[in-house]
Design a protein around this nucleic acid. Structure first.
Lengths: 259, 259
DNA sequence: AAGTGGTCTAGACCACCTA
DNA sequence: AGGTGGTCTAGACCACTTT
């Protein structure tokens, strides 16, 4: 009943949905509602028709109408308040959300990406690293500095520390590491339970600048990370250095499509 | 049937849900699934039981089971692949998402926040501003520099430009502007259709440093913004300067709660 | 009391993947 | 062909807010 292979003709009802379309009803309804917000028919701050009213006007069930409204909620276009109603959101910069989409897209292709090991060694942990990994005094850690290249151009300068567990040949494992498939220890990919990331502004240090072929002193992003194992113990930490040009952090609020 | 006021006793079935609890069934199921992921019973990369199996084992309907799984999906704990199954995600830094929660929390209280106008004037638009606001040559713009204080300590240095529309007393309106209630023109709060934000690392300039009581040269966040009206024309632009201490950008992946 | 969003059911059928 | 996730229905009841 939902799809119809027998015809390519498309009826365009004035304001109804096409139940023979491959596009789910709730997506169609969501888009129609977005259009009304986009055109200012539903103004910021104003109340949307109730779920029941929407279900009725589009001749769909309440659950389906609710699913459509859920889409708008996911996109941050509306607020749902139990007992009061659904309201078009007023734009607020504090609801901005910045994702690493640009990097994810680069890594997704897996082509043109290569890793160069700058340094790999076992060292005595510094105070800073001991704090981050919750280590006893005089603990040894593995340090690996990598340069990630995209189309043979420096992309990310990566420094990571991991526990020097004598039970396994860690350094070799870390040298094999493939950033593409998860970024750290390939064999330990599924041994991490959780991770914490912190984004910071930073000033490019001489060593980093030289490695990345950039002028020292430039403003860059520093992405710190800590990975935890299934005992909730920090098992690896480190940071990435990357320029805002290679990793643009952009966020859009409001209606940006669907006319 | 969902709530039960008659008793405060709580039965704790081994692995079932409490249908008399105020906590929705789908939330209970989601938490139980999270526990199993947290404990490593469901390991990263492995397949979760099917929706039908979950529905059956918890004695709930398929839709409710699906809703529970939807919660995990929202939190980025799992991947749903049609026709194949549901799988526990392997942590990837590229799926990090940074929100301005810390700022939103500060602004939410509305207490201890005050605005100081540093400068307000009408100026000829520079090339940069003309590009951003898509202006003709020799256009006038309103420039306002504000300092947002929290508990009488400098928090944000804010610079904004807006079209100098002769139809309304803009400068006065902008002087009245209250960051708390939306950040720009109070009267125009609901006249914006969409906005774009860009997060950048920056180096604190002398004027900014002095205003914020910070040493020049420090690394800070620069949050650029452009607001569009319902004609899709850029109507206002500008940027915030804020330190990473005042606006920590942290992101957590994996299971961080629910023992 | 009436209206709103939120939860839940017990089915049905569809689209997709694997075997 | 059988299993999986995805969509949809027509109802029911609940919790919350406003009148």
């Amino acid at each position: 009943m939902k799809a119809n292979n027998t015809t390519s003709l498309k009826l365009l009802p004035e304001d109804g949905i096409d139940k023979n379309s491959y596009v789910p009803a709730y997506v169609q309804v969501a888009n129609l509602l977005k259009q009304k917000i986009s055109k200012g028919i539903y103004q910021p701050g104003s109340q949307l028709p109730s779920e029941a009213a929407i279900a009725n006007s589009f001749q769909i069930s309440a659950m389906t109408a609710r699913q459509a409204i859920g889409l708008l909620a996911e996109e941050g276009l509306i607020d749902r308040i139990q007992g009061r109603g659904t309201f078009v959101k007023i734009l607020q910069f504090t609801s901005s959300n910045f994702g690493l989409d640009s990097l994810a897209r680069i890594f997704a292709t897996e082509d043109d990406i290569s890793i160069r090991i700058i340094e790999a060694s076992v060292q005595l942990a510094t105070e800073d690293i001991k704090n981050r990994l919750r280590l006893e005094s005089k603990s040894s850690v593995i340090l690996v500095k990598r340069l990630v290249l995209h189309q043979n151009e420096p992309l990310i300068y990566q420094i990571s520390y991991a526990l020097a567990d004598p039970e396994s040949p860690f350094v070799e494992t870390m040298l094999e590491t493939n950033v593409l498939t998860g970024f750290l220890l390939k064999k330990d990919l599924n041994s991490f339970k959780k991770a914490e990331f912190k984004l910071l502004p930073a000033c490019l240090q001489p060593e980093e600048a030289e490695t990345l072929h950039l002028p020292a002193g430039e403003s860059v992003f520093k992405l710190e990370h800590i990975y935890y194992d299934f005992n909730d113990s920090p098992a690896a930490c480190g940071w990435f250095i990357i320029t805002p040009e290679k990793m643009p952090l952009v966020c859009r609020l409001g209606v940006w499509s669907y006319e």
